[in-house]
Simulated scan of single mutants.
Amino acid sequence: MHYEETAHNAVLWAHYTDDELAHLHQSVVASLDPQEMSLVLAWILPSSAAQERLALLSDMRMHAPPPVFDSVLGLARAKLSTTDWHKLAKGLGLPAAPQVWPEYVAAH
C-alpha cells in the first residue's frame, strides 16, 4: 500500500488532474457489478480508518440509490467491530444499537 500511495500516486498526479482522477475512479467503481462491489467493500470497510469509512459512506449516501446504500450499511454492520460500527453510525446520524437497526432500515 505504501508503494502504491507514494510511487504510483506520484505518477498519476504528474499526468492527470484531480478531476480526471476522480472521473477515472468513478468509472472503475461504476464498472463493478454488485457482487464485485460487495466483495471489495467487505475488505475495504473494516480496513479503512474511521474518517475514510465515514467519507466513503457519506458520499454513497448522497449518490447511490437508497437500496444500494442500505445494502452497504448492512455489510458494514456485519463486517465492522462494534466500536467501528458505533463510530460510523454516529457519524452518519444512525442508531448504532443492533436491535434498533432492522427497524430503522424498514422505516427508511
Rank of each mutant, 00 (worst) to 15 (best):
Val105Gln: 01
His15Glu: 09
Glu52His: 14
Tyr3Ala: 08
Asp84Arg: 04
His86Tyr: 08
Ala96Glu: 04
Glu103Leu: 13
Val28Ala: 11
Asp59Phe: 10
Leu80Lys: 02
Gln99Lys: 04
Asp18His: 11
Ser31Val: 07
Gln99His: 12
Pro66Cys: 00
Lys90Leu: 11
His23Met: 12
Glu36Ile: 00
Ala14Gln: 13
Met62Ile: 04
Leu56Pro: 04
Trp101Arg: 05
Pro66Lys: 03
Trp85Asn: 07
Leu32His: 11
Met1Ser: 08
Val29Asp: 02
Trp43Ala: 13
Leu94Cys: 03
Val11Ile: 15
Pro67Arg: 06
Ala7Tyr: 06
Val40Asp: 03
Pro66Ser: 01
His2Lys: 07
Asp59Gly: 11
Asn9His: 11
Ala7Phe: 04
Leu32Ser: 05
Lys79Gly: 03
Val11Leu: 14
Trp13Ala: 13
Ala97Glu: 15
Ala97Met: 10
Ala42Met: 01
His25Phe: 14
Val105Phe: 01
His86Leu: 09
Leu75Val: 05
His63Gln: 12
Trp85Gly: 01
Leu80Arg: 02
Asp70Phe: 09
Trp85Tyr: 05
Ala30Val: 02
Ser71Glu: 13
Ala7His: 06
Asp33Leu: 03
Arg61Tyr: 01
Glu52Asn: 14
Leu75Thr: 04
Met37Lys: 09
His15Gln: 13
Ser31Phe: 08
Pro46Gln: 05
Ser71Phe: 00
His2Leu: 12
Ala64Arg: 07
Pro34Phe: 01
Lys87Met: 09
Gly91Thr: 00
Pro34Ser: 00
Leu73Lys: 01
Ser27Gln: 15
Leu12Val: 13
Ala106Thr: 04
Tyr16Asn: 09
Glu103Ile: 09
Ser71Val: 05
Leu32Thr: 03
Ala78Val: 01
Pro95Asp: 00
Ala64Tyr: 02
Ala106Asp: 06
Ala49Tyr: 10
Leu41Asn: 03
Ser38His: 13
Asp19Glu: 15
Ala50Phe: 00
Leu21His: 06
Ser48Leu: 15
His108Pro: 02
Leu75Lys: 05
Val105Met: 02
Ala49His: 14
Pro98Asn: 05
Ser38Met: 10
Met62Ala: 15
Ala97His: 12
Gly74Asn: 12
Pro65Leu: 11
Glu36Cys: 02
Glu4Val: 06
Ala55Ile: 02
Arg61Val: 02
Leu41Glu: 03
Ile44Gly: 02
Ala14Lys: 11
Met62Asn: 11
Trp43His: 14
Met1Leu: 08
Glu36Arg: 10
Val11Met: 07
